[in-house]
Structure formats: C-alpha cells, structure tokens
Amino acid sequence: MTPTIKQLKYLIALDEHLHFGKASAACFISQSAFSIAIKELETALNVQLVDRTNKSVVITEAGRAVMSQARHCIRDLEVLMSIASSEQEPLSGKLTLGVIPTIAPFLLPPLIPEVLKQFPKLQLFLREDKTAVIHEQLLDGKLDLILVALPFQMRGVTVMPLFEDPFLLACRRDSRWINNARLDLASLPDESILLLEDGHCLRDHALEACHLRNTNQINRFAATSLQTLLQMVVADLGITFVPAMAKGALIGGNAALELHALPEQHSREIGLAWRKGSSRSDEFTKIGELIQQLQQ
C-alpha cells in the first residue's frame, strides 16, 4: 500500500500541532477520521510514527525521518504546480520567504510592494525567525527562499550575495563611553559594548566585522531585539553597532541617539539562499536582482 498525499499532509499537520484534535481541525476533518488516516499511514510504512498518550503526542525518531521526506514530497508537488504555472508566467503562485528579524522590518516595507507590483500573480507568504531556524525550515521544505545576513554556515543551499550593509556606532549624545574627537574601538572601556543575545547572527557579525577581540569590552547584559538594545543605549548603559539599513527606522526622530561612521568600513553582507538544484532558481535570482536595484 502506497501512502497518499492526504496522509502525508495529515502527518505534517500533526507535527505542527502535536495534538490530534487541533491537527484534525486544521485539516477540516473529524478527529476519528484523522486518527485512522495516521494509523493507516503507519501500517502502509510498517513503522510507528507517533507515540500516543492521553496528554501528548510525540513524533518518534522514525517519524521524524518520514516527516522530513513527507515535507519534501508535498513541496515537490507544489513545485510541480509552480512549474506548470511559471511556464505561463514567471513568479506566479505561492512563494514562502523566510527573513531574519534584523532585516525584515527594514528591507521588506519597500521590497514587498515592488515585488507584488512587478509580479501581481505571486502569492507571497512571510516567516520571521533566526537564521538557524529558517535555514532548517528551508531544508525541510517549509520555506522556498530565505533572506539572511552573511557570513553564516549553511549546507545544501545556493547563496546569492546581494549587497553590503555597513555597521554604524550608535550611542547616546554626549555619551560617557566614547571620545567624539577620536573614535577608536580598541580604546573603548570595559563593559561598554552592548550586543544582542547569543543566537542572533547580528551579534556574531558585529563582533567579527568590527574586529572586537577584547571580551572585557562586551557588556554582560544582552538584548533580545534591536529596539531593546537602543533603549539601553539611550540610557547610556553602553554603545552598540547597528546596520545601516536600520538607520531610518530605529534612529529617526530619536534626538537622544547619534550615529557615527566607523574609522574603517565594517559591514555584514545581505544575501538570498534557496535549496540547491531548485527548479525555481531563475525566479529567485530575479527577486535578488530586484532587491539589488532597490538598494542602488
């Protein structure tokens, strides 16, 4: 017996909800019919996919492996439909884009209207999360394309570098931490540099791009977002480094903050990535070229 597309979709829904009632509701069928379909899938594959208890659902190790392939199968079917659609018109149909939080609020507002203007039949869906998360979602087939900051070690993808995004030093006006007459990163006091918490690639990029080797300069407190980071800077708890693309959104109108160009240009690189061998590479390249045009 061969698994059906419907059974694979039910398994994916169960993984997303980890609850038979919620997953069946999301699939618009009764819980009993949903449970039967999952059981029939296990019988067809001759493997237990799910551990069931009264309070929880746990996907087994074998279930995880099947789940990954199920996502690829469903994604391949969607690609098949996209290929047929794109033969009639490029960049039409569904496209799911993953973006990291330190890019999304600054690059997407001007980008999305232009994308939809140029490709009106494109159905664009967005997901925002850390780089490691959206990379895994890309490999699992949950995303078609991701917009990230580089460098970042990623397997199984094609990367299209787009543009450089310089870092700027952000501080409170008349901050006690810096000498405006002579800005020297190496001479910053201990505990003076505020960064995002571990797991945010912006933290790693700032450390690497700005050559921050003295760990004593890094404040032990870390922020969870750029907005929180800048509030700490306004309170003169330290200085930080922000990407130039965030300048207008984060700094505009805040008279307490000022930005300084760094003595040498330090930057992160913005790029697109998609699964290697994707049949939609040409379409993704067009989106990348559009982003580059908007940055000129």
Rank of each mutant, 00 (worst) to 15 (best):
P161K: 04
S175G: 01
I38G: 04
P109F: 00
S56V: 11
C27T: 10
F167M: 13
A132G: 06
D144C: 06
L122T: 08
E164F: 02
Q231C: 14
E78D: 06
S281Q: 15
L169E: 08
L107S: 02
L49D: 07
T285S: 08
I146S: 06
D129M: 05
K286H: 05
A235F: 09
V242D: 09
L138D: 09
L257G: 05
G21Q: 15
D184Y: 04
W274I: 03
M160A: 06
I5Y: 14
W274M: 08
E78R: 10
E16V: 12
A246S: 15
R52E: 15
L230P: 09
T102Q: 04
L202V: 09
S68P: 01
C171P: 01
D51P: 02
H205I: 12
C27S: 14
F125L: 14
V148F: 08
S278W: 05
S279Y: 03
T43H: 11
E128L: 13
D236V: 12
L229S: 06
Q295A: 09
I83M: 12
T224R: 15
R52D: 13
K247R: 12
E197F: 05
L95Y: 00
R173E: 06
L207A: 05
C73A: 09
R52P: 12
S30E: 10
P151V: 05
V57Y: 02
A209S: 13
Q293P: 04
L139T: 05
E197W: 09
E208P: 01
Q88K: 15
R213N: 13
F241E: 08
H135T: 11
G199P: 05
C201V: 15
A13D: 07
I100K: 00
P109C: 01
G199V: 06
A181V: 10
V57A: 03
A223Y: 07
Q265Y: 03
M67K: 04
K286E: 02
A84W: 07
L143H: 02
